[in-house]
Design a protein around this nucleic acid. Sequence first.
DNA 1: GCCGTTATTGCAACTCATTGCAGCAAGACC
DNA 2: GGTCTTGCTGCAATGAGTTGCAATAACGGC
Lengths: 155, 155
Amino acid sequence: MQPVGSPTPSESRSDDLAAWGSVRDRLRERGLRWTPQRRALVAVLSQTRGHVTGADLVERCREQDPSTIPSTVYRTLDVLEELGIVRHGHGPDGREEYHVLPDAEHGHLHCRGCGAAWEITADEGASIVATLEAARGFAVDLSHVTIVGRCRACR
Amino acid sequence: MQPVGSPTPSESRSDDLAAWGSVRDRLRERGLRWTPQRRALVAVLSQTRGHVTGADLVERCREQDPSTIPSTVYRTLDVLEELGIVRHGHGPDGREEYHVLPDAEHGHLHCRGCGAAWEITADEGASIVATLEAARGFAVDLSHVTIVGRCRACR
DNA sequence: GCCGTTATTGCAACTCATTGCAGCAAGACC
DNA sequence: GGTCTTGCTGCAATGAGTTGCAATAACGGC
């Protein structure tokens, strides 16, 4: 029932350290604090591309520091989301799914057949947004959209 | 954080008893069984319109029979979904959300501001399906689509 | 370097949902 | 009505995520 390993790219080797380095200051500016726990999560995130589930992040943090507490991770993710550093949506099974530093707002496409996932391109997204905007003045939060179906290969 | 009472219509007074009456036979045809627990859930569903969360259904069943077990309810919902009697998607918070006997496949729209929910009309849906179909041959499962954003009133 | 304010943490309890398994009971057959 | 097959149920344990609260520790000021 669970797709066996998503083909989604998810690791990057050369990280935009500059972007990540500013996180500390962005927090401080708002009177928030730069704690070891947050440092650890940010370190994990900086090595991540694409989609990760919350549980995934908890586990990766735990690899570095086994004493990591889940609630702390989730709360930190909330904070980082407010800063616009991560975004979260929900996978086809309803699980939390985070994506890191999106270049642009984008939704996700999940194939029920092979479990693969893609980002919805700006064009495709724009068309969806436009449809609902025109029809009823609804402002779509594209980054939270997950559409499930079957991809060309699986049909 | 939790929207205070959704304006979504969700109760119906006169039920299509005919449709619900056939459930027993549809199960039997497939070699499945018509048990008291299933009868109870179907009774609850027959009085429901629109969206309900899984937890909601469990609770409503429990009102009728306090000995109701959650796993039984969820498993029965799975069966009913296979029969096409209910559909499920995930709400803006990722929770299971069931809708009953859809007249047609349709997705949902959730306003982050007021918590209201609407069905995506056939026209709007068709446009979304067409976009992704054309762009990459992806067959959207419209009934599982939930789009979050802000409605006209809340912007 | 010490202090005080207050954002965060750790923990425990809780909610929603899923799963494995052994015993139970629908419903077909006689 | 009795029997047998096997689809269900009940239960207990597990996983993901959230929340309330008391104790802790960032970090700005002196």
